[in-house]
Amino acid sequence: MSEMLISTNVVTAGSALSVPRRRKRSLAHSKWPVLILFLPPALLLFTVLVILPMGEAGWYSFYNWNGYGSPTQWIGLRNYQLIFRNGAFTQALINNGLIVVVSVCVQIPLALWLASMVASRIKGALFFRLIFFLPYVLADVAAGMIWRFVYDGDFGLVAGISHFLGVEAPFWLADRDMAMYAILGVVVWKYFGFHMMLFIAGLQSIDKSVLEAADIDGATGFQKFRLVTLPLLGSTVRLSVFFGVVGSLQLFDMIMPLTGGGPSNSTQTMVTFLYNFGVTRMQIGFGSAVGVVLFVLCVTLAFSYKRVFMRHD
């Protein structure tokens, strides 16, 4: 029976090879009904929910419009000029850059280090994985509110520690020079667990025999990590950095409860800037222009990153 099956398969494969043209035509022929049946819903959804709003934002960005009635006051590129002249936007760009740098240089190495410790089947590994992953499970807003209490200089954890040490409690979130670093701390705390999980999955898919071979060759622990594990984890690291960068550009809902972008706009990101200067001020045209800038930046970054670093993944 099985022999027969195999032979039939071989025959089919052979005939397919021998008549590629006919096969192609019939395939092309049979594609259309499927396309017609399955494409419209997805295309419609994508158009209505993605393409149209994007186009609308692009259109609104040329108007001075407060959201009431329809936009009538065409002002050309003025909104874009205003964005790049706005000190708070420059600060937001710098902050977004800072978040990217911290997530690539601090968060990902930390996640990798912890992952290499809890990926193996040692006692308690599962427990620690869960603990490290917990912050990521929390909603961003909830995490922001928790840390607002932690950082509070009157009643928070920081206040408690300061009183215990007998020093005056600092108010980091109220300090122009410190607030952004306080936020970066929360960002690392919140997302390292996610990257750690990615790395654990990556580490577990590495063939044990390669590491054993390295052991036999007399490689040290660090050599094994640098020369075997890291290269084999390459695609996971690249993916992790990609998520880190895109996530950093979109950072919003954790900042709002923490500082709302203040004090003195020192903790704005591009999205909080869009919300604070576009939505709450009813400057829909201006806000749309910020949205367009953000979109262009994200798309450029995402595509060029995929092009350059993730070509082979």
Binding site: G153, E168, F171, L173, S264
Partner: peptide, 10 residues
């Protein structure tokens, strides 16, 4: 102290 980080309710 810390009034720049304080809300109205604070």
């Amino acid at each position: 102290n810390g009034y720049l980080g304080a809300t109205w309710n604070d």
